[in-house]
Computed example of a mutant assay.
Amino acid sequence: MPIPRSQQVCLEDTPYYHCVARCVRRAFLCGQDPFTGVSYEHRRDWIEHRLLFLASVFSIDICAYAVMSNHLHVVLHIDEDTAKNWSPVEVLERWHKLHKGTLYTQQYVRGDQLPTYLQSLVETLAETYRSRLMDMSWFMKELNEPIARRANLEDKCSGHFWEGRFKSQALLDEAALVTCMAYVDLNPVRSGICDTPENSDFTSIKKRVTAIEGRFQSKALYPFVGNPRKDMPNGLPFKLKDYLELVDVTGRIIAGESKAVIDASLLPILQRLNILSENWICIVTEFETLTGSIVGNELSIDRYCATHHRKLNRKSTRLLA
């Protein structure tokens, strides 16, 4: 029986989550259908544009994403503190980018005078919207539903386009986070769509590499801010250079361009996170198969189990430790 989403998401454990949404029909999300020869490649742009737009509205950052032929991967960071600091007006302005709201919320944003009882009602409604704008399920709902409607209209059919429930995994520590991000960024390489990560269209790694060529980090994605330290700014706890090297070397191995052996001394990120280099390729190519609803090292798993009174399979723990 599936675990309720409310029990899977706990920001006290981790703000990082891996989400996967899959199509239910043989008709493709994007790419070319080998059976009919029809190309749905243009839908990749729909997905990427909507995904990056939502990141600008929600208090949820995108760490990694990959749009595949019949499914979508995204690694999210939920920024609860930022959402809590928004004023009611800012909350409503953001919500109105997604939905019209009500006559009263529109008047409140414009600064019109409202009776006290209506002002109180609108401010209560703003708190509801605030919680939605930092909610992973609402983020995925706002991503999937418009895409499903456009695809159904284009396919001239009705019914479900996505599976009824997207899959999510809690990433409890840095090792789980970097492994999942690399797994997502390398999806097109592993699937044989492209030979190198930087050539994989509609992925976060391509967007980051393109930005680097312009000597800046992509503003649409959660930034890399370096290894953990005192007074650390908000961002991914890795060096961008280390991560790109890790993905590049791993991608070449997966594509068969080099031997399936990684010299850990060449990849400081593996050393710092205590990830066994001989296990890395196995982990990053079979992440979903080898892991469950939570992912982390042994200490992280033990802490999670003690807090939530759960007993879990430890196969992923041994790989990440």
Rank of each mutant, 00 (worst) to 15 (best):
D79H: 04
E93S: 15
K97V: 00
Q113M: 04
D81Y: 07
L114T: 06
V122S: 01
L76N: 07
Q113I: 04
S87E: 02
K84L: 13
E93Y: 14
H77D: 13
I78E: 04
L114H: 09
Y108V: 13
G111K: 03
P115K: 02
T116Q: 13
K100M: 07
Q106S: 13
T105R: 06
V89A: 13
E80R: 13
E123Q: 10
Q119M: 12
V91A: 13
R94Y: 11
E123L: 08
L118I: 12
E93Q: 15
N85C: 01
V89Q: 07
L121F: 14
L98N: 00
S87A: 03
L76I: 05
H99N: 06
L103E: 14
L98Y: 01
D112I: 02
S87P: 02
V89Y: 05
H71V: 06
T102R: 06
H71D: 02
T116F: 08
V91R: 10
S120V: 04
Y104N: 04
R110M: 14
N70V: 10
L125S: 12
R110Y: 04
R94H: 13
S87I: 03
V91W: 14
K100C: 10
G101T: 10
I78F: 06
T82M: 07
V122Y: 05
S120D: 09
H99S: 09
T116S: 14
N70F: 14
D79Q: 02
P88T: 01
I78T: 06
V89H: 04
D79N: 12
G101N: 06
Q106A: 14
P88F: 09
Y117D: 10
V122M: 03
D112R: 04
H71K: 02
G101W: 11
S87W: 01
K84D: 06
Y104T: 08
T82V: 08
V109D: 05
P115Y: 01
L121G: 03
V109Y: 09
H71Q: 07
T102C: 15
K100A: 15
D81G: 05
L125T: 11
T102M: 12
K97E: 07
L98V: 00
T102W: 10
H96E: 09
K84N: 10
D112V: 00
W95Y: 14
H96F: 11
T124G: 15
E90I: 02
L76S: 10
S120Q: 13
V89M: 05
E123C: 04
D81P: 04
Y108W: 08
D79P: 01
L98D: 00
H99M: 02
L125V: 05
Q119P: 02
A83H: 00
V91S: 12
H96A: 12
H99P: 00
K100E: 12
Q119N: 12
H99R: 06
V109P: 10
P88Q: 06
V91G: 13
P115F: 03
T82K: 09
T82S: 10
V74E: 02
E90H: 12
I78K: 01
S87H: 02
I78P: 03
D112T: 01
R94N: 12
R94F: 12
T102G: 15
L76D: 08
D112M: 07
E90L: 05
V91C: 15
H77Y: 15
L98E: 02
P88I: 08
T116W: 05
R94W: 05
H77M: 11
V109R: 07
D79M: 00
L76F: 14
R110F: 09
H99Y: 09
N70G: 11
V89W: 03
K84H: 04
L103M: 11
V75C: 12
Q107L: 14
